[in-house]
Amino acid sequence: MNIFRLAGDMTHLASVLVLLLKIHTIKSCAGISLKTQELYALVFATRYLDLFTDYISLYNTLMKLIFLVSSFSIVWYIRHHKIVRRSYDKDQDTFRHYFLVLPCFLLALVINEKFTVKEIMWTFSLYLEAVAILPQLVLLQRTRNIDNLTGQYVFLLGAYRSLYILNWIYRYFTEPHYVHWITWISGLVQTLLYADFFYYYFQSWKNNVKLELPA
């Protein structure tokens, strides 16, 4: 464990807590893409298959449980909670996210480190996570006024993977034979997808104006 990875995990945890805070306290999911939340639940479900088979550390197991429980409960909240579901804008959240699942799965079948079920599911979860934010970014461009919590949620979600990139660089230089191209490239693609969001988020913070993404 290094400081970049710990910072990354804490940033990721913060993004989930911000989202749960928004949904649970103000009982609203306005501006939040259910599709991205469903993709993230699938990412964690396919990535943490080794939750009960490979014990790495208490921290690792605890965090996996937190991410699994929180992502599935967020999907449940938006779909079934009688008040929250009313604020879900399904006419705007129209990204066909199923079109992301199949290509990621096919790619995982072709490009992976080992052709085993667990490895392919793990690789699938990496590719899927790289593109999971797309429905949310599209929704942000459609919803004119982005509220602070939603903006902070997306920012933290993008920031966590950038910190992971620093972690991979650190591990590359400190651990012999630490090379994982699949992880690195999908993590880089994921972070690059946030590039323009980061730009507008920073501009709104610098000029102290409301965050708006150009259509």
């Binding site: 990875r5 990721h12 790495i56 690792n60």
Partner: peptide, 10 residues
């Protein structure tokens, strides 16, 4: 063999 793979990451 507990080789330090990325699998120890979240």
């Amino acid at each position: 063999s507990q080789e330090p793979s990325t699998k120890d990451e979240l």
